[in-house]
Design a protein around this nucleic acid. Structure first.
Lengths: 107, 107
DNA sequence: CGAACATATATCTGTGTGGTTATACGTCAA
DNA sequence: TTGACGTATAACCACACAGATATATGTTCG
């Protein structure tokens, strides 16, 4: 069972899938057909990508007649932002430590 | 030729590789041996991961005698933060648009 | 020099997964 | 009900790639 960050990174690692997600972010809710027409891959491939995006919590689906509308769930990106900030934070704290050390050495 | 974001996402998608990078972020510069001892995979595997991390600009290497020291290059995470912010930005702007629409409808 | 060590490269293998086509499932219109 | 449509699922294939083992490259020490 992969943790949330792993699932997010793995899900967004594929260019086609990420492009679909980006499109949903930029242009809002879209049907599978609309997404397929600009994806460069077949409709089943798009459905599969959407399934994985949904599994990662990155999209919602809404059924309306025979169409399915998908939309981005931006909240799902939070763990990614947290992770990035955390990594940057570790770096900065180590940098501060170094700075302190240099200051003490300077005395 | 993959763009920077694609390379970043793909590089960080692997759990073993991401763990190595995290360790370098948390604990600073490490030798290949030190990284190997806690990675759960073989030394060649670690070397290969470090090679990919380096290719993505996420780590630097410094040779000292027969050891190689690796350290995290946090600047390389910037495109990732930019992308995340961009996606969140699109979402917010669409939210603002909706708000505007509702306001106009309210009049 | 030769041996132990640290890391990198070579080669191979198994598997995960993105892609396809074919088909099933649900919905709307006639 | 029949047929067209929109989407999802099934079955299959090809390929990328993470991992292993074996070996090469380079370094320190005796």
């Amino acid at each position: 069972m992969p943790d949330t960050q792993d699932l997010l990174f793995r899900t967004l690692a594929d260019p086609t899938r990420r492009a679909i997600f980006e499109r949903l972010c930029r242009q809002g809710e879209q049907t599978v057909g609309a997404l397929t027409s600009q994806s460069g891959v077949s409709q089943p491939a798009v459905s599969k990508h959407l399934g994985l995006l949904k599994q990662a919590g990155l999209v919602r689906d809404r059924h309306e007649g025979r169409q399915t509308h998908y939309s981005a769930q931006l909240g799902a990106l939070a763990p990614l932002m947290d992770w990035t900030r955390e990594m940057a934070g570790f770096w900065e704290s180590r940098f501060d430590d170094l700075e302190d050390l240099l200051k003490r050495m300077d005395q």
